[in-house]
Computed example of a mutant assay.
Amino acid sequence: MTSDDYKATEQLQLSKLATLLKKSPSKKKAEKELDKVRRDLAHFQARLYAHDRHAILVCFQGMDTSGKDSLIREVFKDFNVRGVVQHSFKVPTNIELSQGYLWRHYIALPSKGHFGIFNRTHYENVLVTRVHPDYLMAENLPGFDSPEKATEDFWQMRYQQINNFEKELVENGTFIFKFFLHLSKEEQKSRLLRRLNTPEKNWKFSKDDLKERKLWENYMHCYEQAIRHTNTDIAPWHIIPADDKPVARLLVAKILLETLSQFKEIQAPQLNDEVSGNINEYIKALENE
């Protein structure tokens, strides 16, 4: 496989894309391969940190139970913690609502030399709010006095704002990866039932999960629209079959590694002549202490 195999297209139709690969590796094989890929990713992270010229932003979107949390844990578990920061964007706070909707995402961006992981992202502002336009009322937008003001022109404006946001990031040295974990409705049902039937996982369940599940088709439409309008050359979307968690994790890790390996310029800086020319002396001095 290559990363291109999973890139979104202009005519994206999620209903026609598989949520499970026809020829999937076994769980054991997928986990073994992931172990190697994530070690290679960790080596890249070390070089990125030392190079200190670029940042990496990895964005994950998906329906509830699509596996975002466990994927992040497994793919990035070999990273040095000082070089990676994860943010999970929940319901906006009053302070966040008093700013523009992108503000809380700006202040969470990774600095140069770091990976930033967005678990749910700035795209919530064209997904959840599009399914529930009444949520927009809390933003106190000028001239926005009813949910009916959320017209198609309004969403097109937000898509363009998001594209501009990502364009600015890329132009200033951030590489952006966007992954949609494509889960089937049947698999979501199975995972919700596991939460309910497993006492130690009961805490993950909310009655709102069932409420949102009834809006599945609406969410799929909003995802299609958002992905189509924000799928750019500089920040493309990847659609990851997510019914098999170990395979989904492996696909994300391989796409990251395949793409990042192309940036040959990201290397640790060379030692200056004074240090490099006297390494043997430094070694001898330490050994003779």
Rank of each mutant, 00 (worst) to 15 (best):
L20W: 10
P25I: 03
D35S: 12
D35C: 10
V37C: 01
R39N: 10
D40W: 09
Y49C: 01
A50D: 08
A50F: 14
H51W: 15
H54E: 15
G67A: 01
K68A: 03
R73Q: 13
E74H: 15
V81W: 13
V85I: 13
V85P: 02
N94E: 14
S98Q: 06
A108Y: 07
P110Y: 07
S111L: 12
S111V: 13
G113Q: 06
T121M: 07
Y123N: 04
L127V: 14
L127W: 14
N140Y: 05
P142D: 10
P147E: 12
E148W: 04
T151G: 05
E152L: 00
D153P: 06
M157S: 07
Q160C: 08
Q161S: 09
K178A: 04
K178F: 01
H182M: 00
K185G: 04
R191P: 11
R194C: 06
N197A: 13
E200Q: 01
N202K: 07
N202R: 15
W203N: 04
K204M: 11
F205H: 11
L210N: 04
L210P: 07
E212Y: 10
R213I: 09
Y223V: 03
R228Q: 13
N231V: 05
I234A: 02
H238P: 04
P241H: 08
L256P: 06
L260Y: 09
L260W: 11
D273P: 01
S276P: 05
G277Y: 05
N278W: 00
Y282K: 08
K284N: 15
A285F: 15
